[in-house]
Design a protein around this nucleic acid. Structure first.
Lengths: 176, 176
DNA sequence: AAAATTATGTCAGCCATATTGACATAATTA
DNA sequence: TAATTATGTCAATATGGCTGACATAATTTT
């Protein structure tokens, strides 16, 4: 009857039950709105999400090198270049020659950059807090464990890297 | 001493404590890897993430109209156009003239589209399940509540819309 | 010391995905 | 009949990715 080449609508099948569409969609919607918060702010600075991500990680990991930033963002050098240059040219980020290895450029936010990073993070933080309360989350640690477990195992080191001590000179570098 | 115009590195301040950087970053990393799963598959079809999102929602909300799809994806008609056209031309999605309003085009996946949607969702679902187990999540409902609470309140209706009953003809439409 | 490697920067070009604004058509509603 | 609505399409533009090639300086290896 129905030629197999003529496309026709199709119903869900039994296998659909095996797939966790609920959480897949919830993650999509949650992240969609989570990232929408800073957009309005960024537009006022003629910045985009790419600038946001760079600024965020430089703020959180002061002294980060270019190579490390590329690994965290999972983008290429060329993709980073323009965005980073703009942030430097407009005084949000500075580069410092690496003390151990002078080829490296350690990245730091300026006061201006720190302020903007904070301003961008604030609405996101508020959204998170509101959601935690609204959902009546008691076990916040469980939520953190879940999100961390969503990360590729070999990349989880990136998650644990936030500026704990303050002195990062001993953390990185293959001084053998 | 230090001219205020010359950018210099800057330290974290007290306000940083008020911001939930931990969860902000966890969301970033979790979502980064969550979306990376389907990419390898999509590349084999010469599709991108835009195709994935369209296919996902058409699969999950059969009979969705173009306007509804635009609202869910939060993109413009023109952004959708090319991607949707490609999916239709290659037989993954079909349009059916709306029965109530013949201006509308109801969107449906074909069998081919359904298969691909499922194939794309599978690794994501597996990642979620692995993370739930690994994190020892007992209260899955709490996680769902949290994610849903992250969504803008006025947009939460979109979250609840998945095809529950199977018969969707009575769910939507403004028949009073 | 010379050679190889590494970290960074830059150039040129390409692609995917998003945007806005304008306009056309058909169908519905007023 | 007139206005509105749902969709489609055209043109132009922006952003943020990509690859490949090449240059420079600094470090490491030989």
């Amino acid at each position: 009857m129905k030629s197999p080449t003529k496309p026709t609508p199709h119903e869900a099948t039994r296998e659909d039950e095996d797939v966790d569409f609920a959480l897949i969609e919830l993650l999509f919607f949650a992240y969609r709105d989570f990232t929408s918060d800073p957009d309005a702010i960024l537009a006022r600075y003629d910045f985009g999400r790419a600038h946001h991500r760079v600024l965020h990680f430089v703020n959180r990991r002061p002294g980060l090198t270019v190579a490390e930033l590329l690994e965290v963002l999972r983008i290429t050098k060329q993709s980073l270049a323009r965005v980073l240059k703009q942030l430097i040219d407009t005084g949000y980020v500075v580069q410092v020659q690496g003390p151990r290895d002078r080829r490296q450029r350690e990245l730091y936010v300026t006061k201006k950059g720190h302020s903007l990073a904070l301003a961008l993070a604030l609405p996101q933080s508020r959204r998170i807090n509101a959601a935690l309360e609204e959902a009546g989350i008691e076990d916040r640690a469980a939520l953190e464990r879940f999100l961390k477990a969503m990360v590729d195992p070999e990349l989880r080191a990136q998650v644990d890297r936030p500026p704990s001590g303050g002195d990062r000179t001993s953390e990185r570098g293959k001084m053998e």
